[in-house]
Design a binder for these strands. Structure first.
Lengths: 136, 136
DNA sequence: TGACTATAGATGCATATGCATGTAAATTTA
DNA sequence: TAAATTTACATGCATATGCATCTATAGTCA
């Protein structure tokens, strides 16, 4: 009975999401939103397009993921010189929220890391990177 | 710059979903629906509760995942002796659909397996199982 | 038996995901 | 420069996900 690769990873992904989301809920964020805030925190400014590459995310998924963060004032959006482009950056509130979320993220990350162990984590990233490379 | 375990797996999960969904789309299914059909095909009959454990899925997620499959007549639902329980099984159409979907799944699985290689796949399942065990 | 508790599912709400498609702006080409 | 093409982003639609909560049924215990 051959195991489905997609199903195997999907289950694991759900478990991880629940752990990280559980911690991040204290500041009202989900894991995906945290990733977006982090990417913007580290890059100061990005277009939607840039973030798609960084986050390995579909354009439509990203656009919608940004929506509540813009709505709640954590991300500022303005048109670029190229009229098609939307430039995004964290507002002061967004930076504060990221810093707060980062503390919660660290708790989640440490908890998971402690239980999985170094070797498993290395394998996880190695496997995940290999899978992402399937896109090329 | 520490990498986020959740983010790493999430990206990989999205890539896999797209590959499998791309193939399964030919019969109108998504990967999650295929997993449900498969579980029912192999077990003949299950309650919602049973499937939650098999699929490592939240009750509400599963209930909603079943909805379109029941709606479209692929899964039959009837109450069990225990009035709270909902018993589920594949209809004849559901069995046919599963068999058709299984062929498409095999194409996807082979394609991914060929590109990842045996060792990476073993690691993938090993890591995924370790992550799922975090629930305990 | 009646009250309390536990279990199985369903629903409201909000985000997550991506295909097909639409709109607008920039670039290329004839 | 006008038309065709490409690029960036938005929207309609449908499924995916799970927390909080609700309903109904089953089981437990005083």
């Amino acid at each position: 009975m051959e195991r489905c690769i997609n199903f195997g990873m999907r289950k694991a992904n759900r478990v991880l999401n629940q752990i990280y989301d559980g911690h991040l809920a204290k500041c009202g964020l989900k894991g995906g939103q945290y990733s977006i805030l982090r990417a913007l925190y580290l890059r100061k400014q990005s277009s939607n397009r840039d973030l798609q590459d960084i986050l390995v995310m579909d354009q439509t998924t990203l656009t919608r993921g940004l929506k509540p963060l813009i709505r709640d004032g954590y991300i500022q959006s303005r048109p670029g010189e190229d009229g098609r482009v939307k430039l995004l950056c964290l507002s002061p509130e967004g930076k504060d929220l990221y810093k707060e979320a980062n503390k919660l993220w660290q708790v989640a990350q440490k908890q998971v890391a402690a239980r999985l162990g170094k070797e498993t984590i290395e394998q996880l990233f190695s496997v995940a990177n290999s899978v992402v490379d399937l896109r090329n």
